[in-house]
Amino acid sequence: MSIDLTFVGQIIVFVTMVWVLKALLYTPINDAMANRTKKIEDGLAAASAGVEAKSIAEAEAEAAIAAAKNQAQGIVSAAERRAAEVKEESVLRARKDAAAIVDAGKEELKAEVGRARQDLRKEVASIAISAAEKIINVEIDAKRHARIIDDTISKELATA
């Protein structure tokens, strides 16, 4: 139990071990740990940046969808308005056309009636003439005949 040359030997061993372990064990392990820590920190930072970017993108997408919805609603309501207008217009036009057709029919009918009356009058005259011819052919009795002609004419005129 004494201090001797072992002491010197132990100092040499100890100092060598510090140097060796620093170079071969501590530094590589410490570097590996530091690198890993840095990598993990970078990864976490990237992840949080990604989450932020995602939330921003989501907000943008939501805004775009809302704008699109607004626009679509506008387009639909405009189309509906236009459709109502078109419908009303066509109804009005149909009604007008119908009235015009009815008026034309009435006028045509009136003209037809007038024409028929004219034809009838001509027919009455021809009948009267034929009757007169017959009477003339059967007997000529000026007085009676005159009276008959007058009666006939007056009767025909009265009915016309």
Partner: peptide, 29 residues
């Protein structure tokens, strides 16, 4: 001279331990 001696057992065991640590470091590295 009492100083001029060396404990071979201490030195041997120390060197073995140091050698093991060195070998382990090289193996792990």
């Amino acid at each position: 001279n009492a100083f001029m001696q060396i404990h071979l057992d201490t030195m041997l065991v120390t060197l073995v331990v140091a050698g093991l640590m060195l070998g382990f470091s090289l193996w792990l590295r």
